[in-house]
Design a protein around this nucleic acid. Structure first.
Length: 264
DNA sequence: AATAGTTACAACCGCCGGGAC
DNA sequence: CGTCCCGGCGGTTGTAACTAT
């Protein structure tokens, strides 16, 4: 099944895997255009890269998805859509390809219909009340952009620009005129909202409708409710500020970890 | 046992954005 | 500023393994 230029396609053999492993061990990841010649493989660069990233890399987690992974996948997919690489970034050891395959084979039939219906409902609501969607934006940080630079520690004063900020700067700049919250802060708060919700689920609150024993919603519930429906927060639209403050160090660690990973 | 249908997942393809020149 | 190359992404396909008839 060779291509026009004699490049091999199809399933990888054990020998090819070994050659690729040795090559990456010796020269490191990247420079994929050089890998086929250096490894002595009759494969295209893309094929080598894909094989490494999806199969050979040491920290790849294989096998069935755990319940909490599925739960997080569902939540992330609802928020991000088919942004498999972003979703995979939140599932340690899982690749975008794994996540995509798992969704397509296990979850799409089960949940895809519901999600489509949800989206339909959302759309109808939107037509009446206007959009209130918080959209995450994929961010790429340059090497020189340290955690300190992006102002995690002093987030409100940040003026740092990312590539995505450049790309989307029109709306962000417009927002900045009237909104004291920086675009970066908005995105981080978006992640906070997502992950607080996730924490809530993982903390054993398997039913998110549950309330505290005194009948009052707990902080997690209140925060989640505010995210889903800003009206639930009364005049304090959007964020449970006190709760965020309580857990700021947690988020610093989490976000810091992400940036470290992206920087690799 | 043979065949058809289904599922799971590895791999390919085409496109896009960023960086170098 | 335009072009080319590269890495990366999401959609799709091919096929082996499994199940039902």
């Amino acid at each position: 099944m060779d291509g026009l230029l004699g490049v091999r396609k199809g399933a990888w053999t054990k020998e090819e895997d070994d050659l690729l492993k040795k090559c990456v061990d010796k020269y490191g990841e990247g420079k994929w255009h050089q890998v086929p010649s250096k490894a002595g493989l009759n494969r295209c660069r893309k094929s080598c890269r894909l094989r490494w990233l999806n199969y050979l890399k040491a920290d790849i987690k294989r096998g069935e998805f755990a319940v909490d992974e599925v739960d997080l996948l569902l939540r992330l997919h609802k928020l991000l859509g088919n942004r498999w690489s972003l979703i995979a970034g939140r599932l340690p050891g899982r690749t975008a390809n794994h996540v995509k395959n798992y969704w397509n084979t296990h979850l799409r039939k089960k949940y895809g219909k519901h999600i489509m219906e949800d989206n339909k409902e959302d759309h109808q609501k939107t037509m009446v009340s206007g959009p209130k969607v918080i959209k995450p934006r994929p961010r790429t940080f340059t090497k020189r952009l340290s955690l300190m630079n992006i102002g995690i520690k002093n987030i409100a004063s940040t003026t740092t620009t990312t590539s995505m900020d450049n790309k989307n700067n029109t709306d962000h700049q417009e927002e900045n005129h009237s909104d004291p919250i920086s675009p970066l802060e908005k995105d981080i708060k978006w992640w906070e909202s997502l992950l607080y919700d996730t924490l809530e689920a993982n903390a054993g609150n398997t039913c998110s409708t549950g309330s505290g024993s005194d009948g009052e919603p707990n902080k997690m519930e209140k925060f989640s409710a505010e995210q889903v429906d800003p009206a639930a927060a009364g005049s304090n639209i959007g964020i449970g500020e006190a709760f965020v403050e309580d857990h700021k160090s947690f988020w610093r660690d989490l976000i810091s970890m992400d940036i470290d990973l992206w920087d690799l």
